[in-house]
Design a protein around this nucleic acid. Structure first.
Lengths: 239, 239
DNA sequence: CAGGATTTGTGCGTATGTATA
DNA sequence: ATATACATACGCACAAATCCT
């Protein structure tokens, strides 16, 4: 496990612009570590997160762990049963289907908004992220692939300049990322590369209607693949 | 202020089905009270929420207050400046415009989904909530009107049966409710009653395209009214 | 179904880091 | 630059509820 570092008071004459921003609170550090563990699928759905165990494992107090856990509960990654504990959620079939359907509506809206604003920056960055995604899939690195996929698909929302839309997407994407993690869909279906190729091609082209159709097609394939693999893995629903 | 009650251990032989669910934790009770204060506009944007003061005011420990505050931060009602404090957010013009625009996309999607499922229950409940809204507006009760408006507009999302969509709506609606609270748009513009009349009429009719147009019109009027009153009230942007 | 073990929920004292007047 | 107020963090204790044998 990662060891949480106390942000040391920079006393020396070291380069001030070099060191990354460390003023994260304990709460934030713990939450980020746990979030990565869950969203990458390294912690199975249904697992209980015990405060005292995490506290000694991380080397921080129970209070900090409690706050980090509640941060993840608010984000929908954990569910809390009062006086029983916090458990990693498991995405069921209905939730996943709903998430993909809603994402379709969001993404069509997103592309409609950003369509006239597309420029060289957009094409370049979007392509770069796509190449990074393909690389992780080819390497069959499941954990990195999930992260790269979310990084790729987040870009239109970032580029749209609509902060509220981006907020909503971040919330929704956690559910989608969880279902990816549970189903291990990315690594197991390398043909996804071809799917995303036509997706990005349409995104860089000039036919908005074609892009809308492409979004529908892409998400339909996604939901089918995830559902099939969820069944195959026979992940228990839990509670 | 509300006094937080310790959930008493139901020992007697009182009616079990009558008493509302009290097993709320302190944290949840405090959070709900604060949320109501903020969303109804009784606490001005920019106000700092001081843990120690709230703790003595509520009669609970600082830990509970801390956790409740972070719950509201996660929900976007407060912003946290590390080691400085938690402050009530103020919705600026850009955010409000984006929120209303996105709500349009969500609501068109929502009605498309629920359109074939509409039944007598839907018509009855939607009408009931609308009447309650009109009543509070006529009574010029701003706090209750905000709540009634959100209750009314939430119903399609509840009825859609799409839990993910409902989640996203709840997140988005907080931003909209905040802008209502800041602008006091409802009480000041009684003509809103007429606006919502044609809105619900279309929702109960059988022309989905007309409903989509109605949604666009309704939200456009809303954003204009809020923006005008925000300027009129000259609420400072803060931070 | 009783009762004990486990874990969460809550309160309080205290120390330290950070912002701000 | 100093002081003050406050958030952040830790540790402990105990109450309350769940879980399990």
């Amino acid at each position: 496990m990662n060891q949480i570092q106390k942000p040391r008071a920079r006393t020396g004459t070291s380069l001030p612009e070099f060191e990354a921003v460390l003023p994260m609170t304990r709460r934030a550090q713990v939450a980020e570590t746990l979030r990565n563990l869950i969203l990458s699928g390294r912690v199975a759905p249904g697992t209980q997160l015990v405060e005292s165990r995490l506290a000694s494992r991380f080397g921080v107090s129970r209070g900090s762990i409690r706050e980090a856990i509640w941060e993840l509960i608010e984000q929908g990654l954990l569910i809390n049963r009062p006086y029983a504990g916090a458990f990693v959620v498991s995405v069921d079939d209905k939730t996943m289907t709903e998430a993909f359907s809603l994402r379709g509506a969001l993404e069509r809206y997103c592309f409609t908004q950003l369509w006239p604003k597309r420029n060289e920056t957009f094409r370049k960055e979007f392509t770069t992220r796509h190449k990074a995604l393909v690389k992780t899939i080819r390497a069959r690195n499941h954990f990195d692939a999930i992260e790269a996929a979310m990084h790729f698909h987040s870009y239109p929302y970032e580029f749209s300049g609509n902060a509220v839309l981006l907020d909503v997407w971040r919330q929704l994407s956690k559910k989608i990322q969880l279902s990816f993690a549970m189903s291990q869909v990315i690594v197991r279906s390398v043909e996804f590369i071809g799917t995303s190729e036509s997706y990005i091609a349409a995104a860089l082209d000039d036919d908005l209607d074609a892009m809308h159709r492409e979004i529908n097609r892409h998400l339909e394939l996604g939901v089918i693949a995830v559902r099939k693999l969820l069944r195959y893995n026979s992940v228990r629903a839990g509670d």
